[in-house]
Write a protein that binds this DNA or RNA. Structure first.
Lengths: 115, 115
DNA sequence: GCCATATTCAACCATCTGGTTGACGATTGC
DNA sequence: GCAATCGTCAACCAGATGGTTGAATATGGC
């Protein structure tokens, strides 16, 4: 389930503004993980990590699927696209930049995508 | 003066998480502006805008130069690079994505850059 | 059935954030 | 010189954020 409500740039950037959450995303880059395993390397309670995961889910960065009693967290890299596109808009200063990136996006945004 | 202390991903993303600040950046995309002019379209006090500009400055997104009694704000698009690079790391999932973006960055990051 | 494991919920707390107002310091123009 | 303009500072406030603990809810294994 990729985020109930369409994530806004607000929620997307706010989610990325916390080092713990960015670290979690990096961990999930390697493989899907159970909540308990995500929490293991951090020096904070499981409940705190659980909250971070809710925020990441609402921002659309991860999806969570419960199999048995463990809940698996999976990275959803598509969520970074909206933010990335917004940011790259500021590259317009250098003509080369926009040009190159538009070609890049032409390929990247090929897949149809609601919202 | 491009930010006294090197901006962290924390400050960069936090700066982008506010709609007012993103709107300010968009305005500055068109041209440099005085603080008063930046504040004009918003329904909040000048002091509030002044605070937002401090946050954007600390994040490295803008620089401010005082000429006479007017302080001019100028966009500094380089600041987006670190964040952009970090984000694109998550594109690694799709080989195409990384490939295209690395070519893109190869050109973009040509200019030498500390940190 | 029962105990252990996995995760969330609820209440609480300190701190950060984004806004306000009013006073203040610089600078300009007449 | 003096009034007006530009911008920040300081104090304050409400609400969000990031953490805690302890209880509650599934589920799995024996």
């Amino acid at each position: 389930m990729p985020a109930a409500t369409a994530p806004t740039l607000d929620t997307v950037f706010a989610a990325l503004a916390d080092p713990t959450r960015r670290a979690i995303l990096s961990m999930l880059l390697e493989d899907d993980m159970a909540v308990t395993d995500v929490a293991e390397p951090f020096e904070m309670s499981l409940a705190a990590i659980s909250k971070h995961l809710v925020i990441l889910t609402r921002a659309g960065f991860i999806s969570q699927e419960k199999r048995g009693r463990v809940k698996w967290c999976k990275l959803e890299p598509d969520a970074l696209r909206a933010a990335s596109v917004w940011m790259q808009g500021f590259g317009q200063f250098e003509a080369v930049n926009l040009d190159a990136f538009e070609r890049f996006l032409a390929v990247e945004l090929d897949t149809p995508k609601p919202e």
